[in-house]
Each structure stands twice: as structure tokens, then as C-alpha cells.
Amino acid sequence: MPLARAIDVSRRYGDVLALDQVSLDVHNGEIVGLLGPNGAGKTTLLNLFIGLRRATSGRVELFGGDPGDPARRLRIGVTPQETGLPSTLRVGECVDFVAAHYPDPVPRGELLARFGLSDLARRQTGGLSGGQKRRLAVALAFVGRPRLVFLDEPTTGLDVSARRALWEAIREFPGSVLLTSHYLEEIEALADRVVVIGGGRVLADDTIDAVRNLVALRRVSLSGEHVPRLDAVVSEHRDNGRIHLMTPDSDALVRQLVTAGVAFRDLEIHAASLEEAFLTLTSKES
């Protein structure tokens, strides 16, 4: 039985369809990365799994039951996107407060040590740096010895070394993780399986390698009149007189441009951002 499961789930906020017929299972021991641009529906899906929101249609299960039922949330841990710790509480008190909700919590000292927070136990959270706050917010997800942890953009806003340290701590966790990110790098570092979400739909659900190839696009920009249909081009758009060609293989595309005798000037090649890759992926779908 999957630990968490969404079956044909849709979620509507007024006129906006945030999730459109999404199905997703999280199995035991699996680290699943939810990848997608801002507004793709990642957080909405997470909020359905952790019982903060209800699906407009479809079914969401947590350990075979309703996530809205507190008993089903005994074996999960959550790090929300926004940290928002009570600023006057001390680090140790935040841990104790969360621990009071679980039958067999990780001892405070052990948890703080695991996340490199031991020296900060007596500090009020309002005085912590952004990275320290984030580490504490992630640590809190692990207090109750969960089997499944939900991390919403766990390392957003952290510098490289802080990010790596946090990844290390997450990787040591033996249970399942569902994490969202808009960094491919973060998903690569942590996840076994990647689910790409765009426009409220699942665009891809595959291994890291498969998804990397899917989203690793390059943008070839040039000035010119007309570009004929070329094999290497996935999509094409124009703005301000520039033609932008999205391609998985920029070398092949350049060769094809030259061979086809296309008149062009000011050729530029950029690695496409994930955002652009997602947009390409989304427009291919529709």
C-alpha cells in the first residue's frame, strides 16, 4: 500500500484550477521530488496530503485514510514553504512543543545535533539567521519519528554550503520523502523519482535521468527573417525581432541552420532555465 496517494485529484480556488486530475503515489522508502515552476500546483498538492486543504474532486489518502484525521498524521512530518517560527520561543522550546504531539519523539538533543543546531537550543528563533531558521523548520519535520516527510522547498534562500548540509541531513533519513523544489539540482541531489508538475497537471513521472533529459533544453536565439522547420527544434517563438529556438541539442541545431542556408545574425546559445523548459513541456502537452 502506498503511504500517500492522490487519485484523480482536482483542486479549484474560485475560478483557478490549481490541480487538474492529478494522480500520485508515494511508496515506502522512496524520495519523490515534485518539480515545477511557481504556481504549478506543487504546494497545493502538498497541502492536500498534509490535511490543510481538501480536494475539490478525487481522493487523497494518507496511510490509507483521510489526511484531515489527526491520527493519520501521526507518522508524517512537515516543513512548510514559509518558516514562520514563533519569534519569542527558544529553539529548544519549539522542538519540545512539536514533540509533545507525538508518542515517541526524538530526544531534543539528538535532533538538534543531527541538524547542527545544538549550540542554538537556548536562542530565541527571532534572533536566528535565515539559514538557521530553515534548518530548524526542517528539523521539526523529523521530531515525531515519521515514516513520510513533506518538505516544501526546504532549502530556498540558503547559500550553497547550508544547502548541502541540509541535504546531507535529509539523505540520512531512512523513510519516505515528498519534496517540492524549483531547482533541478536539489531534486537531483535528493530524489530517486521526479514528478514534474505544470499548470496543475502531472507532465512527467520518471527517474531523475529521464526527467533531466526532458528538461535539459537549450535556447538558441538569433536575428533573421525566417527559420524553416528543423528536426532539432522543439519549439519556436519570437519577440523584439529575435527568434528563440528551444532544442535538446544546440550543436545539432546550429549545424542544421548552416546546412539549411538560413540567413541569421547575432547567434546566442543559453542553457534554458527550468521555467523555460517547463513552459516548453507544457505547451507540447496541450
Binding site: 490535511g51 489527526p70 493519520r72 512537515v78
Partner: peptide, 14 residues
Amino acid sequence: AQPWDPYVRTLPAG
């Protein structure tokens, strides 16, 4: 208005 409030809602208590 604080994100702590919805976080507390995810703990195993009503």
C-alpha cells in the same frame, strides 16, 4: 497571518 498557524494544523492534533 503567521505561517506557524497552518504548520501547527499539520501536527497530529485537531
